[in-house]
Design a protein around this nucleic acid. Sequence first.
DNA 1: GCCGTCGATTCATCGGAGGAATCCCGGCAC
DNA 2: GTGCCGGGATTCCTCCGATGAATCGACGGC
Lengths: 239, 239
Amino acid sequence: MSRTDEVVDGVRRMITGGELGPGDRLPVEKELAERLGVSRGSLREGVRALTVLGVLDTRQGDGTYVTSLDPARLMSSLQFVVDLHGDTSARPFHAVRRVLETEAAGLAAHRITPEALEEARAVLDLAARTLAQDEVDHAAFIEADTAFHRIVSEQGGNPVVTALVEAIAGRTFRERLWRGRHEEGAEERTQRDHEAVWRALAAGDAEAARVRMAAHLLDVEESLPTPARLDEAAQPDES
Amino acid sequence: MSRTDEVVDGVRRMITGGELGPGDRLPVEKELAERLGVSRGSLREGVRALTVLGVLDTRQGDGTYVTSLDPARLMSSLQFVVDLHGDTSARPFHAVRRVLETEAAGLAAHRITPEALEEARAVLDLAARTLAQDEVDHAAFIEADTAFHRIVSEQGGNPVVTALVEAIAGRTFRERLWRGRHEEGAEERTQRDHEAVWRALAAGDAEAARVRMAAHLLDVEESLPTPARLDEAAQPDES
DNA sequence: GCCGTCGATTCATCGGAGGAATCCCGGCAC
DNA sequence: GTGCCGGGATTCCTCCGATGAATCGACGGC
């Protein structure tokens, strides 16, 4: 176990042990380094790693603090590794997104607030206006697409689901997604799908919301590359 | 943007840009530091962060390499942050596990290999023998429980699902889970649920596999604390 | 041909120094 | 009293140099 791992583990113990909680401040570098029996350099490596993971937050001139530990923050590091993958592995990732967003849509049908429903309506109207233009602003449509899905995901009421979906279907992933959807009418079809989801949400029909969202995301999924990959049981290579 | 962030971003670019791929070796510290315009200390902080994220792998005396970038490895860091959460937030995490494993069970019904089916059978038999003893070995039963779920998850054929489930329902999480299940007959009920899932898999009945797995995991979920938490729309505090 | 030894390479760890950002507190003007 | 503004203290950020530890590969003995 390296010195850095001892730092990471030490801070983990301090949090799980109750010594440190969200928002609490850590001892200064010198003191914490002595306490954990490592040099300042090693301590900094460990603290930096925890910062990247979204567990700690360092502020120059101030100190090092434990973050809120919200799922949203903790999952943000996941987005980085997801974006690292190429287009070939987009399908299994999207399958996860589909399953989670479908569940969220079903939950949202019973829980969505009038304000959120209204906001989703506004987003769809904006998207419709975007599509009605002579020269369609694709970036604006993607923006509206993202906003709609985010509202539904959030209204599902499970912060872990929201954070995971956000991490998987992040900016890079979505852009890759739309880059591969050049078929005629893809955006119009998306708009119709969204409208169907919205109607189900407005009606409070959970089953309809699930089905509509699942169908929409399956539609998207079929436009992804390498459809044969999941049919192979064995992993291709690697030790 | 700190020096360390520049290192992380720089390595990310080298990977997404194709300069580096899985298994490739990075330039030595001194060289890479000069190339990215940072000191060796800052470089090491960035490399260490990527190591924790499962992207890089450093070997003393050898060099620094890009990992396989398998979802399983990349999601392993997620387990750390999940385990950081207390018992109070176990429910939303378990809901994600339930949805994903349900999907995996449905997929596995059509894809499971005879060997995996046989292995699952052996695990269930072992669990049954464990429960038949006068003094039940709870640790052994948890082990069998974990093994059964892992087989099903793997046979779902989606490595991202498998990795996510592994990260969420890791060792710490499961131990917390069973610690809260002291009701009479909980283990026997789990065993019966697993048997039902197994029969569905053996019959190749995807719908049955889904329902059985979902019911089983809902059962587990109901034993988790703070059931009222998800019914509150607003987040409790925090800026 | 096999194996051990030794040197070169590379990462791991440590210590120290100066810089930058922030906070806190006292002094000052109004 | 209230508000503003410095200045000092605190804290993290970055850099540099040096030593230790682990690995690899070449060389030579057997």
